[in-house]
C-alpha cells in the first residue's frame, strides 16, 4: 500500500474545520429531534385519537423513505414549499431533526410504557396535573431506561450526517473529498475523515456512559 499522509498535512486545518460544521448539524438536529420525539411520543400515548393518528402518519413517512431523499426534498423543494431557497446547512438540520424525531418518538414511547403504571396513579392521587406528572415523574424515569437507545440514535445521526455532502454542506466528509480531488488522491483524506468520525463517536459514547452513571445514582 502506497500511503503518503505528509502531502495532506497543509490541508488538515481545512478538514478539521469540518468537525465544527458536523457538530453543529448533529447537535441542533439532535435537539430538534429530541423535542419533536417527546411531543410525538406524548401524541402516541394520548387518548385523543387524532393525535395518535398524526404521530403515526408522521413516523411512518419519515421512517418509510430514505433520509437522503428527505434531505434533497427539503433542500431542492424549499422554493416551492416556502417560496425561497434555504441554506444547505438549514436544510441539513431540518431534515435530520425531522427524521430523527420519528425514531426518537418510538424510543421515548417505549420508555414511557415501561414505567410502572402505579407511578402515574401515585402522582394523580397527589393531585399532580398531567403535564407536571409527565415532565417530573414519568419522563425522567423513562429517559433513564432508554438512554442506551437514545445514544444509538445520536451516534447514527453523527455518522449519517455525512450525507449532507450531497447538498454541498462543507462538513468533514465534503472537505476530505475536496482535498482528495485537489491532490488526485482520495484514499488518505478519506481515511482521515474516517478516523475523525470514529473519534467523535467514541467521545459521544464516553459522554453517554458518564450520563448514564449519573442517572443511575438512585439505584
Amino acid at each position: 500500500m502506497n500511503l503518503d499522509f505528509t502531502q495532506f498535512i497543509p490541508s488538515m486545518p481545512y478538514i478539521l474545520k469540518g468537525i465544527l460544521v458536523t457538530l453543529q448539524i448533529v447537535v441542533l438536529a439532535g435537539v430538534l429531534g429530541f423535542v419533536l420525539g417527546i411531543i410525538l411520543s406524548l401524541f402516541k400515548i394520548s387518548s385523543i385519537k387524532i393525535l395518535n393518528w398524526v404521530a403515526d402518519v408522521y413516523t411512518s413517512i419519515f421512517r418509510g423513505t430514505p433520509l437522503v431523499l428527505q434531505l434533497m426534498l427539503i433542500y431542492y423543494g424549499s422554493p416551492q414549499i416556502i417560496g425561497y431557497q434555504i441554506e444547505p446547512y438549514t436544510a441539513a438540520i431540518l431534515s435530520f431533526g425531522l427524521n430523527s424525531g420519528a425514531y426518537i418518538s418510538e424510543i421515548i414511547r417505549a420508555g414511557i410504557l415501561a414505567v410502572d403504571k402505579g407511578q402515574q396513579e401515585a402522582a394523580m392521587a397527589l393531585g399532580v396535573p398531567y403535564g407536571k406528572m409527565m415532565w417530573d415523574i414519568i419522563l425522567p424515569q423513562a429517559l433513564k431506561n432508554i438512554l442506551p437507545a437514545l445514544m444509538n440514535e445520536f451516534i447514527s445521526l453523527t455518522k449519517e450526517s455525512a450525507i449532507v455532502t450531497t447538498i454541498g454542506v462543507m462538513d468533514i466528509m465534503r472537505r476530505s473529498y475536496q482535498v482528495g480531488a485537489e491532490n488526485y488522491s482520495f484514499f488518505e483524506p478519506l481515511l482521515i475523515a474516517g478516523l475523525i468520525y470514529y473519534l467523535m463517536v467514541i467521545t459521544l459514547t464516553l459522554l453517554g456512559k458518564a450520563l448514564e452513571r449519573r442517572m443511575r445514582r438512585s439505584d
Binding site: 402505579g118 396513579e121 393531585g127 399532580v128
Partner: peptide, 19 residues
Amino acid sequence: MKVRQNVGMVFQHFYLFPH
C-alpha cells in the same frame, strides 16, 4: 385534581418516585 389534593392515598406497592 383539587379534590385529590385533600384525599391522600397509600398503595399496596408503595409507588414511591424512584428517581
